[in-house]
Design a protein around this nucleic acid. Sequence first.
RNA 1: CGGGGCGUAGCGCAGCUUGGUAGCGCAUCUGGUUUGGGACCAGAGGGUCGCAGGUUCAAAUCCUGUCGCCCCGACCA
Length: 489
Amino acid sequence: MSSADKEFVKEIARRDEDPSQWYVDVIRKAELADYTPVRGCMAIRPYGYAIWELMQAGLDRRIKETGHQNAYFPVFIPESLLQKEADHVEGFAPEVAWVTHGGNEELTERLVVRPTSEAIICAMYAKWIQSYRDLPVLINQWANVVRWEKVTRPFLRTTEFLWQEGHTAHRTSEEAQEEVMRMLEVYRDFVENDMAIPVVPGRKTEREKFAGAHATYSIEALMQDGKALQAGTSHNLAQHFARVFDITFLDEDGQLKYVYQTSWGVTTRLVGALILVHGDDRGLKLPPRIAPIQVVIVPIAPKKARETVLAKASELEARLRNAGFRVHLDDREEYSPGYKYNHWELRGVPLRLEIGPRDIENNQVVLVRRDNGEKLFAGIDGLEEALPGVLDAIQRDMLAAARKFLDENSRPAADMAEMEKIITEKRGFVYAWWCGDEACELEVKERMSATIRNIPLDQQAARQKAPAAAKCVHCGKPAAEVAVFARAY
RNA sequence: CGGGGCGUAGCGCAGCUUGGUAGCGCAUCUGGUUUGGGACCAGAGGGUCGCAGGUUCAAAUCCUGUCGCCCCGACCA
């Protein structure tokens, strides 16, 4: 950013000077969220919630297209239920909130505020599933969950957060595994195509997998500060929960069997990813598909031409709204055009449409792209036909820019020294061979606080980013898989 | 949960060392003039100085405790 540009941004910290302050400033000044009297809990403001609603819409459509239905389960889970699955309770116990009283009376059994809903949903599935004809059960829930985190950050890690959690039950192991991969792909498709955030799909290590899962898969994104962010997870629960919750069905062959289950989720954390991947020194930068306002109209209305310009701007607004665009006319009289430019840039509106007396004379408007600052002219007639192309280009270019950053910050490391140098000096994704031994994974973590984000599903592509020799980055023994290491949020 | 930093008007800060009637910039409100990258003039409103104790004739200032936020580590979406 040039020093001339710097003048335009007075409200937020410079991203390169104080990235953490920048992140918080963007959230507060763009009115996405604010701190509340409750530690670790934020209020999501209308503009931030509108983004989440668009994300919900994109995900919900895909979830339903893949055969799932929405349902709702209780926010409270009896202690005994949570404790049924040993790994599960061990994983979540440190971060659950307890309800001990109802009114003034102490409860005979404590309740946990759900940190995730496996337990309560499994209890219901045990009642609902009798026969192989009842399978598969394909249910999704939109809900809030609570995890008593020690360190919180708006959107990235809050005590209470919003998410969607899918919970499915299947007849066979193969079917469950297909479901796990199907939903991981749904997430990849949504995050890349709607949010313009490129991700690496892969399998989590034993150490990093979900508490109680047989296997966990994730999509991992890379933030502009070089830290990784888990953007979505999909778990194969196998029969772990079915056995303890006694979810059985009578199969075609007359045998009583346990179901195979999956669960998968994404959260409001994705809003944080949006900020960290696309944001710049001017603030938020939203991809058109999830921008609450895709086009903001800023009239240039000097006194002499006020009526003419405002009438035309208003007419344009109506036309674009009818054509299906999310459009906003900023006709406030008390602010100058320049102020409005900054105002909407801070809020990440993908496209600004300026219309003034000179434009009206020429029967045109000025379009300015938020993603690259490019200024275009478009005829007023047929504007509806011209806009989709521009918005699509912004969507596409934002993904391309993020992918370029991801590629440029994906580096190979053959040994610990190389890994450490990259992790400490450049960060980003490090592609390295891993023998599969947890001790090697742990050693990397202890020496440079980087973890294995996942083992990419596309090993062929991963190998091209890794050193040629298939030797474990730590112990040097022959390794079969390439893993992605990074410092993570 | 350990180490460090910060809490003074909506936002950003000064004042604290050396106790003595709470200030600045931006924002807000009113009136007027303005409008192609954060307009100008005039006037006005707004703070029990995070909270609770203590010391003192007197506390934003000194002491103790506590809560919150930020940063760096350990645990997690």
